[in-house]
Design a protein around this nucleic acid. Structure first.
Lengths: 144, 144
DNA sequence: GCAAGTTATATAACTCCGGTATATAGTTGC
DNA sequence: GCAACTATATACCGGAGTTATATAACTTGC
């Protein structure tokens, strides 16, 4: 285990997160676009699934969704098969907000990342995809 | 700008951070070991420098340091040249706590990362070093 | 077909970590 | 030695996570 590499990644991406937070201004809390990003990538899912995907607890996700529903970024749709559950879907407003956030992110991070070479981007992409695979909700269970 | 790659990195490392938080238990808040990690890597520095390195505001760092000094993880040393300033150094207890946290991190993340190939680790290392360079306190200023 | 157990979401009370605005103390320039 | 600047600290606030528990609906066994 190369803990030092993971540690460096954790520290660096903390900085990246802070930087991104400043990019979007105070109007777009980090947890919201993270959730939107997951929903946009993986499609509608239940509260519990979303919590697992984001690796937060279910009550934490419920609370976050409360504010996101209020702001009409996502919609709760009743699950036909199980009336205890909800399907969370990104609303049109949510889609637009995510697009706007992405644009702002690109613009703000340009001074730091605008001049990367293709090889550098390839490295980042490989690392991102590697992490994504490893950190998928049930990767650890599947491996055992 | 490949915003999608950065976005994927942000989402993935959020998951990684959560995972790491669960690894260390509630006894070691994330911001504390991040700060210890920076101090250990770059040596003693002032409050303001540390805040810039961690990309948080100075009051935020001051408050964090308050609890870390209480817990004797770091020590404030008067700066001879400027009596307004303090040099923050990692204490012996802080060094041990960081080592313990690293060990626990390695152990807990093993189900997810224990079986990575050397090539995978090389990719992660390259990405980590790339981010570290780009996100150093004054990288953007230096580039312009 | 209903009681018991399980599961999905919600609520409550709490902590930590970040922010802005401002105060205080020390340094520097003239 | 006073004005302007700078380094840290204080006060107050919001966001985002936690655990423990409640509520409602589904499932299972008999």
């Amino acid at each position: 285990m190369h803990t030092d590499i993971l540690e460096s990644l954790l520290v660096s991406t903390h900085r990246l997160t802070r930087l991104a937070a400043q990019a979007t201004g105070s109007t777009t809390p980090a947890a919201q676009w993270r959730t939107l990003s997951i929903l946009a990538a993986e499609g509608p899912m239940r509260v519990g699934e979303l919590a697992a995907a984001s690796r937060v607890t279910q009550p934490g996700m419920t609370r976050l969704l409360g504010t996101m529903v209020e702001e009409e970024l996502v919609t709760r749709i009743a699950d036909r098969d199980d009336s205890r559950a909800w399907l969370i879907v990104v609303s049109e407003k949510g889609t637009k907000a995510l697009a706007a956030w992405r644009a702002q992110l690109a613009e703000t991070l340009d001074p730091w990342f605008g001049e990367l070479s293709d090889a550098d981007w390839a490295t980042l992409e490989a690392a991102a995809s590697l992490l994504e695979t490893r950190l998928a909700s049930d990767a650890a269970v599947a491996a055992s």
